[in-house]
């Protein structure tokens, strides 16, 4: 990493509270080009809130968020043209066909109609979805919807990608394709913000891992660095240790007991 390089994302002293509860407690984060960041943490740790703040979906935070060197709090939405987003829940206008939806999204990102249409078709074909291009999204399977979401986030060749569980619902072959796409994009200098609960994937794909717990950054570094610090084997066990969770066996045992008890009666 060159020192004089300008950071793509720069967050300092980010605090956020929802009515009574603190969600983020002073996050500091600097991200450079070409990084794939595995953004992990237990439910409610503040992962999606951070991403939503960067996308301008949530306001009322304190601290500064600079993207492409520009403070985003001034209300100018132009920076979003260089960002792609795959939300956790597959929200789409699913009464449209993939052609209509993707072209619409492309145009919102400022692409000309024909260019957006042609590119959408090409990307759909590459992901083996050509035959459903003119069918309504509502009729798609979960994996197909996820592919459309992925395409819609990359259609305009963004410099930053925010992906929230981007592999959910995809079959094993598609997972390999998408992982390879992400690695290649990062090699070309794109920044990828990857949040997921599936530790194996995060471990393999990320060049840097940020673990969030209770609104704080609990760990930040490459997988190797994290492993050195905690002397544990997998990211999963590092995750468990850093978030202070060690009773999974007991809970599982009790759960199964409760399930079987209901059946016996």
């Amino acid at each position: 990493m060159l020192l004089e390089e300008e950071p793509v994302i720069e967050i300092s002293g980010l605090w956020m509270n929802y009515s009574d509860r603190m969600v983020l407690r002073g996050i500091d984060l600097t991200v450079y080009r070409g990084q794939i960041i595995g953004y992990i943490g237990p439910n409610g740790a503040g992962k999606s809130t951070t991403v939503k703040i960067m996308l301008g979906l949530v306001e009322g935070y304190t601290g500064t968020v600079r993207i492409f060197g520009k403070d985003i709090s001034d209300g100018d939405a132009a920076y979003k043209a260089r960002i792609g987003y795959v939300p956790e829940v597959a929200e789409m206008y699913d009464s449209l066909t993939a052609r209509e939806y993707l072209t619409f999204i492309g145009e919102l990102y400022g692409m000309p109609h024909e260019a957006a249409e042609a590119k959408a078709r090409r990307l759909m074909t590459l992901l083996d979805m050509e035959r459903v291009y003119d069918k309504r999204i509502a009729s798609y399977s979960k994996g197909m919807k996820q592919k459309v979401l992925l395409i819609s986030s990359m259609l305009h060749d963004p410099d930053i990608l925010f992906l929230d569980e981007p592999l959910s619902g995809l079959d094993a072959n598609s997972v390999m394709v998408v992982k390879e796409i992400l690695a290649t994009l990062a090699a070309k200098g794109k920044t990828i913000f990857y949040s997921s609960h599936i530790m194996d994937v995060v471990e393999k794909i990320s060049s840097r891992i940020i673990l969030l717990d209770g609104g704080d950054i609990a760990a930040d570094g490459t997988f190797g660095e994290l492993r050195e610090r905690s002397a544990e084997g997998s990211l999963e066990s590092i995750f468990n240790r850093l978030t202070g969770f060690d009773q999974y066996r007991d809970i599982a045992g009790d759960f199964v007991a409760a399930v079987m008890d209901g059946e016996a009666r």
Binding site: L55, G56, L57, A77, A81, Y85, V89, I105, L108, G110
Partner: peptide, 14 residues
């Protein structure tokens, strides 16, 4: 609010 994720993440002003 449902369309927030779709429209508000795009470079379109409020």
């Amino acid at each position: 609010l449902r369309e927030k994720n779709i429209l508000h993440t795009k470079p379109v002003d409020r």
